[in-house]
Nucleic acid binder design. Structure first.
Lengths: 225, 225
DNA sequence: AACTTTCTTTATAAAATCTTTATATCTCTT
DNA sequence: AAGAGATATAAAGATTTTATAAAGAAAGTT
């Protein structure tokens, strides 16, 4: 099997060295960048399987790098931050960070997080399109088809449907959905969800008064099938 | 395979002897204690796979021993009691006893209870989905299937069934169930429980007038199998 | 700036679920 | 076999949760 490729973006050479030794002795291939811009171009040229990104960088903040990367880069990005960076961590997760680690970290924890992130990535993101009965969801091009006809969804509607589709058959709680789609802090806005489930149903269900795809689990959440 | 280790805590030497012979001839290893305090320290030093604990002990009551053990000891504890100890049994179950046997007991029953308690202990801890005959309970996705068909349960019904399934074979007292599902303060609302056991039976039992899964233990509670 | 689209709120109707009450059935003891 | 206590079932009432429409706010486009 080919080795997984990991890109480290961090300005401190000692940390880079430490990470490199740890990762290479665990059979990962490593490339490094000391600045945000360098990191972005390395990421573009090598498309690593995972990125370790420091929040505190000299040229542009880790947050900005994260946002830029997420415009086109799908693989896991784990943020590295100093302790007490609570707020930064939350914004990072909001912007699509996969996970985070606070420095100083134990090698075991780092490796565990990396393993789990990569594993999750190959099982979920790697499926490029999902087909559920008359629905076809292309996760790369963000195109939804129903009986081969193109559906026009808004961004939020699409995100919601994609989340459902990735968790087909599983009950998703209101809280979980709200956190995933709207972000932390929206977990009580259950009414948003009701409205959007309503519009989604009108678009994807053959008979929206008697929904087949999006099932209500009263008191808990919704289930997609 | 290593033999299972069983600790007997009972003040009557004849009973200890009887139990020892029975258990050892069935391939269990046995250690004994004649008093509660001795039992607790033996349990701490040997961490047996199961404890047989007499309710009537000279130094401290079996109930006290049970409570002390349950602060740190996770494995099954089967209580031994004389007949007509109904109340004591219920308090014992409330305090985390796994099962009970009334003396005098048949050897076959004793062994069956021990087998089932040990089996349950090694299988149900940390399992994500539980299969009981025609029922399949997925604790992660909150999905219940009967003969592979999806069952629609309300939130409370699901919680109740999940609680039962996690304690398969074990008698759960009304109090305990009410505390777990509805919370502290609802422990006297036995009628709630009756109504919900009724609706659950209608959904999961093949013949709900003659329930197989949810067994009534009159005066005590229910047992799921 | 005017217009379109999308998102957020608010209000209300409808549905589902939970609680309570009443009554029937069962079980155990005397 | 009668009576007490415990359990089961049905059904009405109360409450909570969900669905839907529609108005107001925000964002994006031309």
């Amino acid at each position: 099997m080919n080795k997984w490729l990991i890109l480290i973006i961090d300005d401190e050479p000692q940390i880079r060295k430490l990470l490199q030794i740890n990762l290479e002795s665990n059979d990962y291939k490593v490339i490094q960048a000391a600045t945000g811009n360098e990191g972005i171009s390395l990421c573009a040229s090598h498309t690593p399987d995972l990125v370790l990104l420091d929040i505190g960088l000299p040229d542009k903040s880790g947050q900005e790098v994260l946002i830029e990367l997420r415009e086109w880069y799908q693989n896991p990005i784990i943020m590295l931050s100093v302790l007490d960076g609570e707020k930064e961590i939350i914004t990072a997760l909001d912007h699509g960070a996969t996970d985070y680690l606070t420095k100083p970290f134990r090698a075991g924890e780092l490796l565990a997080r990396i393993r789990s992130a990569i594993k999750r990535n190959i099982t979920t993101v790697n499926t490029k399109s999902i087909i559920c009965g008359d629905l076809e969801i292309d996760l790369v091009s963000r195109i939804i088809k129903k009986n081969n006809e193109l559906l026009k969804l808004t961004s939020t509607e699409y995100n919601l449907l994609a989340l459902f589709a990735k968790n087909e058959g599983k009950v998703l709680t209101h809280q979980y959905i709200l956190r995933e789609i709207w972000g932390i802090g929206y977990q009580t806005e259950t009414q948003y969800l009701r409205v959007f489930v309503g519009t989604l149903r009108k678009k994807i269900e053959s008979d929206y008064t008697n929904p087949f795809h999006i099932i209500t689990e009263s008191g808990v959440g919704y289930r997609f099938q």
